[in-house]
């Protein structure tokens, strides 16, 4: 199974908040729980509507990665231009925000040990009539 490469920049998606008042001793206690999870989970892509079908549909990804890694990866795979809009829904239901952690989404919404994304995309000329992409 192919792996979606980790996006190290994305790990720092939220890195800009400084918690300056963490007591020194708390750092150790917190480090225990805030290490990015390195376990791999499987995600499956399903093309919907005009989205092209990927040659490979199941990928492995590090669970500590943010959802944005998936969207960036898929955009690259589908060779989308920046003006194209990609829609990604979990279980054909909702679009998570870009900063959600993959591992959390997997734990909560997996089906048969896979996290299922359905994808659709639209080109710029369709933007006027298309529903709003988020984010």
């Amino acid at each position: 199974m192919e792996r979606i490469p980790d996006d190290l920049e994305n790990l720092n998606l939220a890195s800009s908040i400084i918690i300056s008042n963490i007591p020194e001793d708390a750092t150790a206690a917190l480090n225990r729980y805030t290490q990015a999870d390195t376990a791999k989970v499987a995600i499956r892509f399903k093309a919907v509507g005009r989205a092209p079908i990927l040659k490979q549909q199941v990928y492995k990804i590090t669970s500590g990665q943010r959802f944005q890694t998936v969207t960036t990866f898929l955009r690259r795979q589908l060779k989308l231009r920046p003006s194209d809009t990609l829609f990604l829904y979990i279980n054909s239901t909702f679009a998570p925000s870009l900063d959600e952690v993959i591992g959390n989404l997997y734990q909560s919404f997996k089906v048969n040990d896979e996290l299922i994304y359905s994808s659709n995309y639209t080109q710029r000329d369709l933007m006027q009539t298309a529903p709003c992409p988020y984010p």
Binding site: L11, L13, A14, S15, N104
Partner: peptide, 17 residues
């Protein structure tokens, strides 16, 4: 040094299933 701690501050954990 563990002074002004910089880093992803938000670790979100869902209620497990």
């Amino acid at each position: 040094p563990p002074t002004a701690s910089v880093g992803p501050p938000l670790n979100t954990v869902h209620q497990p299933l």
